[in-house]
Write a protein that binds this DNA or RNA. Structure first.
Lengths: 250, 250
DNA sequence: TCAAAAGTGTTTGAATTACACCCATGT
DNA sequence: ACATGGGTGTAATTCAAACACTTTTGA
């Protein structure tokens, strides 16, 4: 296909996803045989990290981009997102929601026109995220970056990241989505740490407890944290089963 | 292209729009030479109406569908929406916002796979909307229906309408978008009528006034309504210029 | 016994609701 | 005058923030 033919061809559909994970993973077990909880080694603030993929072909060859790719003929939008996440991150996300669709003409001036449907996803602790920018496991072309200091991104992916961060913060402020950053069970203190990391401000523990429990989505497991050098916290789990797709709830 | 070839072809991109207008148009001028305001002739409740287009080809030939169509190679998503609205409704919308993208496989089992990007739009008074289902002006294949009693719709368009109604109600409850149903200037009573029609419940006039003015988006024009058999209401206009595109603000 | 986070209680002020009441106009 | 919606006032209620204080654990 020549350049001029491509330019008149109908737009292709691609799906890109903004993935968020925390580092260090809030409330993660540090694997020792006693199974003790170990909090942040020190006062390191919990920060948001995002995996990016290095482009291996023009346009924007060599620069970083969101994980994603074209939709297959027999795939739903969300299946495309999941397939690409499995390839780039290596596991299924804890949460996945459609964000927005971008169809600007400038997105890909020289190559074929592409309409991108953006998703955003949350992961709980992921080992590659812990190792920072120099990730090593599966793919040499995937690396994790702090959301505060992203490199220059291909296409309009910087805008997409900004919008996804906005959505993450907004939804964190009125719902309990952020529990998807954590494991199966978690303490309210851990959940509060996540909220503080996402919102970038401290949250009153007493009021947080009341607000979040008033929503009625958390269930007390009856268990408590063990091995803490202070009063052990109750462990909670989310009420409903782990739904994947979820429409934006504006 | 044969059927089996189509089935493996990459998905096409289409834009469909859920258009809302009110009937009778709240606070419309009824054209007489004195330019007097005339309220609803009687107690008829204000209701939401939606224009639909009759399909002239398979699949779903003969059934009603949302106005829309495929994206052109040099068109942005919103331009596609505007072009289709101009064709189906005959004028530009007062508000237009992206809703959600639908890419289910079942959407078009026999024909080419289509990914639909849905928008929603608000129109102020439109003459065809007033004439009800038997619209007559431009296009014989366009008709307006009450949102309460839509016919069977093609594809998954019924789901799209439901979701758009949800979004309209949600956004009406925390913002002043609904003023786009009205003309350039309007009274708070008219805006309140619109909110009551959209939300389906009565709204306290005193509290509504305070809430809506506290948002600071409405400007008192200094003018007042004329010709009412009761105390004339102040006329307001919206502060900012008429922005079209606006991202979903969840 | 001490430090530290878990968890409860209480006070204050802001925001929302409900509703009483006056105002301005055409009939 | 009077009916009608426009517009203001105000008390009651609910909601959110701030912060004091008690509890429970390991060291």
């Amino acid at each position: 296909m020549s350049a001029s033919e491509r330019r008149q061809a109908p737009p292709a559909v691609a799906v890109s996803t903004v993935v968020f994970a925390l580092h260090p993973p809030a409330g993660a077990f540090v694997g020792d045989d006693t199974g003790e909880f170990v909090e942040d080694p020190d006062g390191d603030a919990v920060t948001i990290w995002i995996p990016l993929v290095r482009r291996t072909r023009p346009p924007f060859e060599g620069t970083w981009a969101l994980p994603g790719g074209p939709i297959e003929w027999n795939e739903t939008l969300i299946d495309t997102a999941l397939r690409n996440l499995l390839a780039a991150v290596g596991q299924e996300p804890g949460y996945l929601e459609q964000l927005y669709s971008f169809g600007g003409l400038e997105r890909s001036a020289e190559a074929q026109r592409v309409v991108t449907i953006a998703y955003w996803a949350l992961y709980s602790a992921h080992e590659d995220a812990e190792s920072g920018a120099q990730a090593g496991s599966s793919d040499q072309n995937v690396a994790w970056f702090s959301a505060d200091s992203l490199p220059r991104l291909a296409f309009d992916h910087a805008d997409i990241v900004d919008y996804a961060l906005q959505r993450l913060r907004l939804k964190t402020s009125y719902s309990t989505v952020a529990y998807r950053f954590l494991g199966e069970v978690f303490t309210l203190g851990q959940l509060r740490q996540v909220h503080e990391a996402v919102l970038g401000q401290r949250v009153d523990p007493a009021n947080f407890r009341r607000q979040v429990l008033a929503q009625g989505h958390l269930v007390d497991t009856g268990e408590t944290q063990k091995g803490t050098p202070f009063r052990p916290a109750r462990l909670y789990r989310f009420r409903a089963g782990p739904d994947h797709e979820q429409r934006s709830t504006p």
